[in-house]
Amino acid sequence: MNRPLFVSLDGPKGTGKTTLLEAVTKALRADNKKVIRLSEQKSDPNRGETMTLVNQLVRSPSRDLEFEVCGRFADSRAWISQHVLGKQPTDSIILIDRWYPSDAAFRRTIPFAEILQLNMDRNVRVPDLHVGVVTNPEISWARAAARRRGLSSTVIHKLEEHVACTEAFEQAIADHGWFLCRNEGTIEDATMQVVSEIYEVVNCHLKECLAMNALAK
Score class of each variant (00 low, 15 high):
S102Y: 15
S102W: 14
S102R: 14
S102N: 12
D103F: 11
D103Y: 15
D103A: 13
D103K: 15
D103M: 15
A104R: 01
A105I: 10
A105M: 12
F106H: 15
F106N: 15
F106Y: 13
R107A: 14
R107E: 13
R107C: 14
R107Y: 14
R108N: 13
T109W: 15
I110L: 02
I110K: 05
P111F: 07
P111S: 05
F112K: 10
A113V: 13
A113Y: 11
E114G: 09
I115T: 08
I115C: 02
L116N: 14
Q117E: 13
Q117F: 09
N119C: 06
D121F: 01
D121G: 06
D121S: 05
R122A: 00
R122Q: 00
R122N: 01
N123M: 01
V124L: 00
V124T: 07
V124G: 01
R125L: 08
R125D: 09
V126M: 06
V126A: 04
V126I: 11
V126Y: 03
P127A: 00
D128S: 03
L129Q: 08
L129C: 02
H130Y: 15
H130S: 11
H130D: 14
V131M: 04
G132A: 12
G132C: 10
V133T: 04
V134C: 00
V134Q: 00
P137T: 00
E138R: 07
S140T: 04
S140I: 08
S140Y: 08
S140R: 06
W141P: 05
A142E: 15
A142F: 11
